[in-house]
Design a protein around this nucleic acid. Structure first.
Lengths: 254, 254
DNA sequence: CGCGACGTTGAGTTCGGTCAATCAGCGTGG
DNA sequence: CCACGCTGATTGACCGAACTCAACGTCGCG
């Protein structure tokens, strides 16, 4: 069988969008040993409490971080899309505190912790970039707490779509635009702490307001400025696409 | 005036409870330059969007991480108690994405980023411990999302009290115990995404169930096993008091 | 063509919110 | 020492956003 070759380029781009790495540091990241695998939709590929030996990098597809209450209600606490390191924190905390679950067919690259630790040890700037990546994940999480804790359903949903639009780099402020977002309404409910029925109703409202429409696997944003407004959204916490001169590098070149 | 001397010992203990550091590494942490200051209650001592040059370590008191919606509703996304680094992430991401606010009179130690970066650069194990600390903060945040997203008010509140009891190391499983928790019911509301009125009612229920009672600044837990049960609480995500042989050190001794 | 997963809609319920009054504690100043 | 005023706790009556339950529609697929 023909096996397409995957590499860590998408992840490197993610790092580069926030941190400044030298040519050789970048090259060493691309040279990290990795093992690609295709995972079917709805598969729990990192189980709760599993002690893992490698980190997972998303190349294609969509992955959710799932947690559950004792009576089995699900809460999705994070989404990981291509370029994201779904569990970079496992390098430093190998026991998984939540499960990783594919939402669609997903291609992941697994990189052994030992290799990641080695490169972080050799290059402080890489260690710094990894650490920073985890910190940005924390900032996103913190926004989710605000979202779920204090915003009503309509605002909450608008905010989520805004976050996804920015993370997918799909935003065209002046005109309507589209992006893939392959999730069911029930799964959106699990992200927002709402029931699928209510998600359906709120989507209807947003559609009737001419803000967006959403079908399984595709979002169409019809009025970005208005949607941002409704979602009380400001993109800066995502640290996406910051200007090159603002990308951080604290340690000196090695 | 007599000025009591404060040091980073509480923070070092926090690090030690999760990571393994050598004698000399520990000593260097204690030797970090720091500047103590006393902050009055209800003071915003790290403002949103402020680019800071030092990290804040809590020695005494209680600090909340505050965020707001556009219409001014508050959400507290994290609490920091003595021994915690309230914004260790600022070492790697200096622009504050949320405000730090004292809940009581608080003593903080400020340590310059440059010193923290230097020690992390000299000792990989320290860099690793800092990174791990941020990752644990993320795990706590992730639990808050589940709490606010999927649990009803009674369970949610019980979970919060359990988390605090463990983080304050106050738990005596077999008997009733107490700990200081100097917050108003309105502030608890801001942590849980609920109104003060409802917090009051739910506290009454928990009191009548013989689980706990709470007065301004003090919690009395009357039935820990039952409270844990109601709050669907498991402590492992907090990474508090893990056995010495399980504390992590990934890099070799330097 | 029939089944299963997902989306859509209506009717009725409930948990938590809103508004408002009252109470309790406490620091201040006369 | 006591009156005052402030902040926070408590309680009641009513309201409304989101939930529950249930029916029905739609689409893709074996």
């Amino acid at each position: 069988v023909f096996q397409r070759q995957y590499d860590l380029r998408p992840f490197l781009e993610r790092l580069n969008s926030r941190s400044r790495l030298s040519e050789s540091e970048q090259q060493e990241i691309l040279d990290l040993p990795s093992h690609a695998s295709q995972v079917a939709p709805n598969v729990n590929f990192v189980r709760l409490d599993h002690v893992s030996e490698h980190a997972c990098f998303i190349v294609e597809g969509l992955v959710g971080r799932f947690e559950q209450t004792f009576d089995g209600e699900r809460q999705i606490t994070a989404l990981h899309l291509p370029g994201d390191a779904a569990d970079l924190h496992s390098v430093v905390q190998p026991k998984a505190r939540s499960a990783l679950h594919t939402m669609t067919t997903t291609t992941i690259l697994r990189v052994p912790h030992v290799a990641l630790r080695a490169i972080a040890a050799r290059h402080q700037a890489v260690a710094e970039a990894f650490w920073r990546d985890c910190v940005v994940d924390g900032a996103i999480l913190s926004q989710w707490v605000v979202n779920v804790g204090r915003r009503d359903a309509r605002t909450r949903l608008a905010h989520l779509i805004c976050e996804m639009a920015v993370r997918y780099k799909a935003v065209r402020p002046a005109q309507e635009f589209f992006f893939d977002f392959p999730v069911t309404q029930a799964q959106i409910g699990d992200m927002m702490g709402l029931t699928p029925v209510h998600i359906n109703r709120v989507l209807k409202v947003l559609r009737e307001e001419g803000l967006l429409s959403l079908t399984k696997s595709r979002v169409r944003v019809m009025n970005w400025p208005a949607l941002k407004d409704v979602g009380e959204f400001t993109a800066d916490y995502l640290q996406a696409d910051i200007r090159p001169e603002e990308r951080l590098r604290i340690v000196a070149a090695s």
